[in-house]
Design a protein around this nucleic acid. Structure first.
Lengths: 343, 343
DNA sequence: ACTTAGCACTCAAACATATGGAGTGCTAAC
DNA sequence: GTTAGCACTCCATATGTTTGAGTGCTAAGT
């Protein structure tokens, strides 16, 4: 059922006011607004119906109304006026970030988001599973030590030292590297496993003593698929009146700190900005909190997420515009920092 | 001036009780203790003197006494009874940690400390500046791309991809690697700079087009000298009555989150366990908080720090024993995980 | 059939005031 | 030097009381 225009107008006014003041909004306050030229009694009737429909809530009988999660949902989907020009806040500061490691760069971005928005931020490094293996190198160091180097088609090189048992000849290792490069390059990193490695090894008639190399390589390749999540500015939550009650604050902070991984939404289509309101987040610890996410791209090959967490009462319009702005800036920053690596 | 035994006994009793209850301790409560067989009046007199000497404080006139930072200091230095057997809490869980990257391992240890002690933890990766360069490799990938690999004498290999301008020949790069290995191996990583690199290059009569390689190498080597600090379990602070006041909690959490680096004490001799009480921490944000640190060793070549943060009222005896236990366990864990790398 | 003025009613928040009790400091006796 | 006794302080808690914003409902107006 579609709401009447007047109901929408009232709901929008309530949410707008409540976002600013954090106080329940009464009919008289609303009636004083120039654009709502009805009497407070009329508005009261409308509010009562909006409550029946589930868009508003009453903290107690003789208080004004506050928006319910459903109310916020309607607000973000239909009612709120998205700022025309993308928030350019902080783009210059963003472009100042000079860090060359992707993970630390994302962490810095998280700090910047926290500082500029005054909200707790959640950021994730991208998952790069889809990347193809470009080259694989085994660099001999001494009799039993080798450095494995994995060069992906796009993204950063990673390396690891491995120690074999003595009895593995340098030649054999070199041959292994050659065979691997012949057979395994050009395939997705995610499809390279210890087993596959061993098949190749056996096919080439090479010693089983090369086992440790397989194990370490698997570990190294796995690390391309792992995603890091950074949480910054937890303390920003405490400035909100909704967390005046230490219990609530602690519950939320506990949840956030415990395993940040679960905060990142399943990588379904987040296009532009995604808003999760209260219970939509799933976890009961988040039932009074909202999150706003934007995705950023790392070249063609992966995407990560930046976001903020706060009470359900937040300025969704402004914050999602800001976050979209950050994401856009971050795309540029990544392109420029890793110009050569992620084409 | 040395305190009388009776004063020490009373001070110890007050601190012991206060650590448990967080309530100011009165003379009557103390007089009820079997080991203090004096009347409450006598104890009152003693308490009054202890206050004059700066070991106790009064929240207000008609309340009991609480320990001052100076009181705690005396307590940890002389009064408290250190548990005989080192706390073995969590050693098995510690040894379960299977992470092979040092930084992530330390982070996991931080989480474990938080979970077992219920205090916020601060952990740092060790600084490895003193390590010597063992080998330096440049692996060609294509015409203009190379992977730099730095192998230190002890610790993990690191690598980075570098793109040169076209016009740099593969032979030249190989020659450069050879010259570098001839001249720079065996010296401390910290003494390798872009300048030094360039001197070597020029001496060998090699092209200035190799500049980017110098730049990236410097960056790579710098990363050995950087220290990461992890803060875990911030929310644990909120369970203490001293942070019932959101203002205080926020101030402290703000400070902790802002730049964790400053939490790590200057690497002076922390032998065993170091306790910093309230104002001793320097920063005003920490004037109501205490920290306990223990150092751990990474082979012979470096040391890092694990610690906890909490209100000045904490069980110094128990917690420092626990922390010492963790440090000991961590030493073992590192030795076993990186057996080959850090001899 | 919608809108609105009016009014009784509700309830939290703010303020005022009393009460209890834990604790101190001081004095005087032991 | 120690201790019993006592007046005094001050917080914490409980108990009204008041205030005012806000609601729901009814009845009259358009």
């Amino acid at each position: 059922m579609e709401l009447s225009d007047r109901k929408k107008q009232i709901l929008k006014a309530i949410i707008g006011d409540y976002i600013r003041t954090a106080e329940p909004i009464g009919s008289k306050t609303l009636a004083a607004r120039p654009e709502l030229s009805f009497s407070s009694a009329t508005i009261r009737n409308e509010m009562s119906e909006l409550e029946d429909l589930g868009y508003l809530e009453k903290p107690h009988t003789s208080a004004g109304r506050i928006p319910s999660p459903l109310g916020y949902r309607l607000y973000v989907d239909e009612l709120m006026s998205t700022p025309e020009q993308l928030e350019e806040l902080g783009t210059d500061q963003l472009m100042q970030i000079k860090v060359r490691e992707l993970d630390r760069l994302i962490q810095e971005v998280g700090k910047l988001i926290t500082n500029l928005t005054e909200y707790t931020s959640v950021t994730s490094t991208p998952v790069l599973q889809r990347t193809l293996l470009r080259q694989f190198e085994i660099v001999p160091i001494d009799q039993t030590s080798f450095v494995l180097v994995v060069v992906p088609e796009t993204g950063s090189v990673r390396s690891k030292m491995v120690h074999t048992v003595s009895g593995v000849s340098k030649d054999e290792v070199e041959l292994l590297a050659y065979v691997l490069n012949q057979t395994l390059t050009g395939i997705p990193l995610s499809s390279i496993t210890t087993e596959r490695f061993d098949i190749v090894r056996r096919a080439a008639g090479l010693s089983a003593l090369l086992g440790p190399i397989a194990e370490y390589m698997a570990e190294l390749i796995e690390s391309f698929g792992t995603q890091q999540v950074f949480l910054e500015g937890e303390s920003k939550l405490l400035r909100f009146p909704e967390y005046r009650d230490i219990q609530k604050a602690q519950e939320l902070l506990d949840y956030l700190g415990e395993d940040s991984g679960k905060l990142i939404p399943i990588q379904k289509k987040i296009d532009g900005v995604q808003i999760m309101i209260g219970p939509e987040n799933g976890s009961s610890a988040l039932s009074n909190a909202s999150m706003i996410y934007a995705k950023y791209d790392i070249g063609e090959i992966g995407q990560g997420v930046i976001g903020i967490v706060g009470p359900t009462r937040m300025d969704y319009a402004k914050l999602s515009a800001q976050l979209a702005g950050f994401a856009k800036g971050l795309n540029r920053l990544i392109a420029q920092t890793f110009l050569d690596e992620y084409k």
